[in-house]
């Protein structure tokens, strides 16, 4: 199996939705047996960490993991920082810090009294070190910083039920890695998802429709055509700013997965329905290390 929310979302999302169904039916002890998994993408690991934190905290679900037998996948789990969420005695020498920005999250920042803005700056510095000194003033880094900041703020402001106060449950996860001529960024927040937090009244007002397709809702929110859940008049600029990054020339490709919609952007945008609900919002993008033709940012 290729365990991936992007490249094999039907099978992978079905797996997680089956897991949610079993929890609803009263099961509480689980073994994620990944021994037969042959390919594994990082976003799945971010999702599993978030599920473990939520359910452990909320209803004392026990989640055990059998790691893949495939050596490369074992390495990915350790090097990404995934394993440290489940084991305290991981040998950090195995983490390749030169090329990997290990998984971090908002709840751990709060616990360590680390300002999220510091994490945004650390991620920018991680990316900058792969560029020549002369290119480090490139606007892509300012866009990266402001987008990461807005993604984290969106998590805090919009992604959750108002009555949920638990800082472990309300969380974002960030990971980055340099592969070849690209730096890949993964950002996941475990909230309700973008299409569920767009203000229903504004949607109704704008379109006169109750059941807009999720594709249209996502597209409109990204274009700043209506406000997010805060509903305050001068707000709603965060996601359009994030979209500026995701559609920038220097960003080779980007994807957004939220609820039942998937957006892929590479020169032009494409939307797809996904067959199962995805709980949260996942953003993945690449920053090219190769100078882009017609790039005006330099």
């Amino acid at each position: 199996m290729h365990f991936s929310l992007i490249n094999n979302n039907e099978e992978s999302l079905k797996f997680f939705n089956d897991f949610f169904d079993l929890i609803d039916r009263g099961y509480y002890k689980f073994l994620f047996n990944m021994r037969e998994v042959k390919k594994l993408d990082i976003e799945v690991l971010l999702y599993i960490i978030s599920l473990d934190k939520i359910y452990k905290e909320k209803i004392n679900i026990q989640l055990n993991i059998k790691v893949p037998t495939e050596q490369t996948l074992k390495y990915i789990m350790i090097a990404s920082g995934f394993t440290k969420y489940f084991k305290s005695n991981v040998d950090i020498d195995e983490i390749d810090e030169e090329n990997i920005f290990p998984i971090c999250d908002g709840a751990t920042n709060r616990l360590n009294k680390k300002d999220d803005a510091r994490t945004c700056a650390d991620a920018v510095d991680f990316a900058k070190k792969f560029f020549d000194y002369s290119e480090r003033k490139n606007q892509i880094f300012r866009l990266l910083y402001t987008s990461l900041a807005e993604l984290m703020l969106n998590t805090d402001n919009h992604a959750y039920d108002e009555d949920v106060e638990d800082s472990i449950i309300n969380n974002w996860y960030l990971f980055a890695v340099k592969i070849g001529d690209n730096i890949l960024f993964y950002f996941f927040d475990n909230g309700k998802g973008i299409t569920k937090t767009a203000r229903p009244k504004i949607i109704d007002k704008a379109y006169g429709l109750i059941n807009l397709e999720q594709k249209n809702i996502l597209q409109s929110v990204l274009n700043g055509e209506f406000r997010s859940k805060t509903g305050i008049r001068h707000r709603g600029k965060g996601l359009p700013q994030i979209n500026d990054l995701l559609t920038d020339n220097q960003v080779g490709l980007s994807v957004i997965l939220t609820n039942r919609v998937f957006r892929y952007h590479s020169n032009k945008e494409e939307y797809q329905k996904v067959p199962y609900d995805f709980r949260g919002s996942l953003f993945i993008w690449t920053i090219s290390l190769v100078k882009v033709e017609g790039d005006s940012h330099g």
């Binding site: 700056a121 920018v124 300012r142 866009l143 402001t146 600029k237 965060g238």
Partner: peptide, 14 residues
């Protein structure tokens, strides 16, 4: 600076 996120800008100057 690293950059000015829209939320900061709006709250400070707006």
């Amino acid at each position: 600076s690293y950059g000015y996120p829209s939320s900061f800008r709006e709250e400070a100057f707006g």
